[in-house]
Structure formats: C-alpha cells, structure tokens
Design a protein around this nucleic acid. Structure first.
Lengths: 229, 229
DNA sequence: TATTTTTTTAACAAAATCTTAATGAATTTA
DNA sequence: TAAATTCATTAAGATTTTGTTAAAAAAATA
C-alpha cells in the first residue's frame, strides 16, 4: 500500500479540522492534527510531516511567531489559512517563510491544488534538523549545540552566526552576506565586529582557537565552516 | 554591480505592463515585456528570465495552453494574473505548473511577496556553476577550487583571475582584457604583475608549473585556460 | 534599581596579500 | 648571430586585512 503525503493540520477549531480531515483523507493524504501552536511545533519535530496547514489565530501563540520558530530549523512547506487579514500580514507571513496563504472561506479544490504546488516545489535541504562536523553537533530544532556531547551556551547573535555558517557549510560566505543575514541590510557592513563574534565562536567550538579546524578564515573574502568527517 | 532577478511580464495591456515595470524596477528587478503569448514563449527561450508573470486573456493564445507549452521544456516559476475566474480554472492552472495565482485587482506588495516565495523555492541545479578541466574543479557558488578532490586556497585576486579564465575557457584573453577585468579600466595595463599572478596560479593548479597543461601562454597575446577531458 | 549578560567600539598586534623591481630564460626580430 | 622583446621567476617592502584584547554602552534579568 502506498502511503500518501502526511499533512499536519494546526488548527484549534474542531469544525475546520473535521472538514480538512474528511477532504484530505479522501484525497489520499494522511492527517495529523494539532490543536495548539506548541503541539504543532512538537509534532513537526517528531512526525516530520510532508506539509503543514497552519491556521492563524491559535490561542497560545501568534501564527507569525509559530512560522518563525519552525523556519529556524525546518523548511517543510507551510500553507497559512486565515479568516481575513491585511496585505501587510500576508506579506510578512510569506516573507517569514510561508509557501502560500489562503483566505477563508476557501474552496477545498483550491487548497488541494495549492498543496500540490507546494509539494512539488519542495527544496531538498541537506542540513535539515541536525548538523554535525567533527565533534560539534547542532540540533536546530532544540537550538542546542554540543561539543563532545557537552552542551555549549551561545548568545542569540553567536547562535545566529553559527547557524548561518552551518546551514551553508563548506560554502565561503562573504562578510557582507553574513552581516546582512545577522543584522539586516540597513546596517553598515563593517566587518570589524563580525571578527569579534567569530573569535567568540572559535573560543567555544575550536580546540585551539588561534588555529581553527572548523571555522575557517578565507582571507579577503569571508569565512567558511568546514565539514570534518 | 549586482543585477537583480529578471522578470518576464507577459501581458497585452499597456496599463498593467507600465504599472508592473514601474513597481518591479523600483524593487530592483530587471524587466522584459511580451505583449503576446507567442512573444512570451520566445523571450523565455531566448532571455532565460528568473521568473514569469503571465496575465491570462492574451489575444493570441489561451493562458492555460501557454503554461502547458512552457512547462514542456522549462520550469521557470510562473505567477498567473487574472481578472477573475472559477475555482476550476485556478486549479487547472496550478496543476498545469503555475507556481501561484493572483486575482486582479491585487496588491503590489502581495505580488512582490509571492514573487519572493517563488524565487526562493527555485531548486538550484547542482551541475550549474561548476567548472571542470582535467583534475581541476571549480565550484563558483561555494567559491571552492579542488584539485584531485583536495581543496586549494586562493587569494581574492588569484581567484578572480582563475574565475575569469575559467568562465572564458579555451578563449585567448589578452593582457589588457584580463587587467581590465581584475583591476578596472583605470589601471595602466602593465602586464608585468599579471605574470606574477599567472605564476602563482600555475604553482597551485599545474603538475609542473614550468610546463603548464591548463593555464597556457599565448605568446604575444595573452593567456588561455584549456579544457582537458 | 542593581546586577548580569550581551553587544558594540576602539586600539594595537599579527598575518596575509598586493605591488614593485630586479634578474634570468625564452622567443622574436633585425 | 646579436639585439630586442616578451615571459618566468624570485624576493622584499608597502599595504591591507584579520586576530585579539579590553572596556564602554546597551539590553536583559533579577
């Protein structure tokens, strides 16, 4: 028996969940349901759905934040459902990583079609979930970094830098690319304090910070996180 | 200079084209316009746009057929614009390969956001941006150069020179062409230190730097990177 | 508010790169 | 063949970039 794609429906309204379950199952999908943001995030981590339908207006957390949190470590397609909303909301959700945005009431046929679009556009991502190089292990879902099995602490900026480098392992990232990623395009790209952060990361993850094995300098260009088997 | 993504707008209405051109250009896109389906298909083939905005209701051909035809040979993202339409039309267009569907009148912000979604979902072609000759392999996206699978280091100028030569493999490049590319047109074209860099490259990529196989001298003219199978 | 943590700035040391110049080898020209 | 031109090679000083430290400023936490 061929198992269809697994859909995670995150919605607190029973009506909608029931309706989606019926329609989706009759189209060969397998359904998982979450009734809160927290549960939704947990199920995403544990069940690895193929696609997520996220209703806005959950009781426990703003949909925008849910998406942001998900996108920190996974890029499963997300289709956002919402009663109605301003253009700004739509835009910010799409930019936060939503694949599509559908306004209620919607036609089931359209939702199904847009799900098919999202599923066929899946970007294969090698660095999903867990990253490993040498003795360093990063678990994006739990925002945890371990060296020799021992957990390390990172400030938000340090972690953002490490994550960006890890997501682009073996790729040379220019100073500007890194600064844009961390501080946004408005900030004057002054590499001077990028160096400070690089040093701080090296002090935490390298055996000998002045002779790095993992976080390498590419002189005149930027930095690169190397993959060590 | 960074060139923005190239957008092909296929629309017969001057008003819409003008509006899109203004907005998109102000957001850094480069615009190509087609006023008919036929022209749109031709321009897609000749100009290789990064994304296509296809208005339905073209005079010469049904939008659905245009999309079908495009999808036979290319998978550039297509966003469909349309005045209004039935759910079935939407669904059949999405299933025919459209990445998104927007109903007129639409908010420019939303169109831009959905374009960003479509552009970030593009699956990068792994073999694109990779150059190979003999045992030498250059990955432009990663800025990595490997010889026998071992990564080599290059200074910014060395890399710029190697990249320029590789991008123009088998072509004889004059001293002036190379110097213009690397140091800009203001610099007095003195070939003397181009030689220094050529030597440095040879030392890194050639088996026997004094009898180069790859980076060849064309006496009296310039240099050439040869392709070895 | 006081304390701690994190971010940002600034200054100097260290390292890498760029540029120049000088010399010998190879090639072309007279 | 000798002279002239072009090319290869080396090395060293100048310049730019990066590493490192420490302290001030800002933000978060108690």
């Amino acid at each position: 028996m061929v198992r269809g794609p697994v859909v995670l429906v995150i919605d607190d309204e029973l009506q909608i969940r029931r309706m989606l379950r019926l329609s989706l199952e009759s189209h060969g999908y397998e359904i998982i349901e979450a009734t809160s943001a927290e549960e939704g995030i947990q199920l995403t981590a544990s069940k690895h759905p193929d696609i997520i339908i996220l209703d806005l207006g959950l009781p426990d957390k703003d949909g925008f934040l849910v998406l942001k949190e998900l996108r920190e470590w996974c890029n499963t397609p997300v289709i956002v459902l919402s009663v109605k909303s301003s253009d700004e909301d739509k835009i910010s959700l799409l930019d936060a990583g939503a694949n599509d945005y559908i306004t209620k009431p919607f036609s089931m046929g359209e939702l199904l079609a847009r799900m098919r679009v999202a599923l066929r556009n899946i970007v294969p991502d090698a660095t999903e979930g867990i990253f490993k190089t040498g003795d360093l292990l990063i678990d994006f879902a739990h925002r945890s970094v371990k060296l020799h099995g021992k957990r390390l602490k990172f400030t938000p900026t340090e972690y953002a830098l490490l994550r960006f480098l890890a997501r682009n392992a073996e790729k040379v990232l220019t100073h500007n690319q890194i600064i844009n990623e961390l501080w946004g395009p408005e900030i004057e790209p002054d590499p001077s304090y990028l160096r400070v952060y690089i040093l701080q990361l090296r002090r935490k993850i390298e055996k000998d910070p002045s002779h790095p094995d993992i976080l390498l300098t590419e002189p005149g260009v930027g930095y690169r996180l190397s993959l060590i088997s």
